[in-house]
Simulated assay, not measured.
Amino acid sequence: MEMKRSESQPPYVVIAADLRRQILDGTYAPGARLPTAKDLAAQYKAAVMTVQSAVRLLREEGLVITQHGRGIFVSATPGEVSEGAEQSPGYAEIMRGIDTVIAELGRLDNRMRTLEETVEALQRGR
């Protein structure tokens, strides 16, 4: 499933919205484990960091919990989504800052991938 691009929303928000819909419609039941961030990144054709940001958003809403080394799980009570967070003071400014950091991390990820490919090509050529 390719992520639908949106000019008005950052990719992680679009991914979070799709996962939220799947959680609330029962596709992912309470207690169910979601695919890994790497698998979700492949599914949405997005960077792992973008998926991690989407998961962070869902965790802040109380929809999922993450267990280090075990995975991402749907909360026992996913229907209790915290509402009104976007109206809190400074929310938009914080989100713009986060979006900037995420975009830069994506660029760095791409540069790192290119460098790794170049090093591998050089090593094969020896």
Rank of each mutant, 00 (worst) to 15 (best):
K45E: 11
K45D: 11
K45P: 00
K45L: 00
K45N: 04
K45T: 03
K45H: 11
A46M: 06
A46W: 02
A46E: 12
A46C: 15
A47L: 04
A47M: 02
V48S: 08
V48M: 01
V48W: 00
V48C: 02
V48L: 04
V48A: 08
M49S: 13
M49N: 09
M49I: 12
M49G: 11
M49K: 10
M49F: 04
T50Y: 01
V51Y: 01
V51P: 09
V51F: 06
Q52H: 14
Q52W: 12
Q52I: 05
Q52G: 14
S53I: 00
A54G: 07
A54M: 07
A54S: 14
V55W: 05
V55T: 05
R56K: 11
R56W: 02
R56P: 01
R56A: 09
R56Q: 13
L57S: 13
L57A: 13
L57Y: 09
L57E: 13
L58H: 04
L58R: 06
R59N: 14
R59W: 03
E60P: 08
E60F: 12
E60H: 11
E60C: 10
E61F: 02
E61V: 04
G62W: 07
G62A: 08
G62T: 06
L63Y: 08
V64N: 12
V64L: 09
V64F: 08
I65P: 00
I65G: 12
I65T: 15
I65S: 14
I65C: 07
T66R: 10
T66D: 01
T66N: 01
T66W: 00
T66P: 00
Q67C: 11
Q67I: 15
Q67D: 11
H68W: 06
H68Q: 15
G69Q: 14
G69L: 13
G69W: 05
G69M: 11
G69Y: 03
G69R: 14
G69K: 14
R70M: 09
R70C: 01
G71Q: 09
G71E: 07
G71I: 05
G71T: 07
G71L: 09
I72C: 12
I72D: 03
I72N: 11
I72T: 15
I72R: 11
I72E: 03
F73M: 09
V74P: 00
V74R: 07
V74F: 05
V74W: 04
S75R: 10
S75T: 06
A76I: 10
A76L: 12
A76K: 13
A76E: 15
A76S: 13
A76G: 09
A76F: 04
T77H: 10
T77M: 05
P78Q: 04
P78G: 05
P78I: 05
P78Y: 05
P78R: 07
G79E: 02
G79Y: 00
G79V: 00
G79K: 01
E80M: 10
E80D: 13
E80Q: 14
V81N: 03
V81G: 02
V81M: 08
V81P: 01
V81D: 01
S82I: 15
E83V: 09
E83S: 05
E83N: 03
E83F: 01
